[in-house]
């Protein structure tokens, strides 16, 4: 592998003055996570029930 070909990867980025407000995104991914856990656990209990 040629080292020089990967050199430009270290591009300095100016610091963002302000992070975007993403409270809704945080809430959405939590809701998504809860849905996944709820569905998984439901089928897992069905599995246990049928043992």
């Amino acid at each position: 592998m040629k080292l020089e070909s990967t050199k430009p990867t270290t591009i300095r980025q100016p610091k963002n003055e302000k992070e975007p407000a993403l409270g809704g995104t945080l809430a959405s991914v939590f809701l998504l996570g809860f849905f996944i856990i709820f569905a998984w656990v439901s089928v897992y209990f069905l599995f246990l029930h049928r043992l």
Binding site: L32, F35, I36, V43, Y44, L46, F47
Partner: peptide, 20 residues
């Protein structure tokens, strides 16, 4: 894709796969 992906996680789990 939310229920679709969730279903995929269920399918790939060994015990749950026995249910479906």
């Amino acid at each position: 894709f939310i229920p679709a992906g969730t279903g995929g996680i269920i399918n790939a789990s060994h015990q749950l796969n026995q249910v479906v």
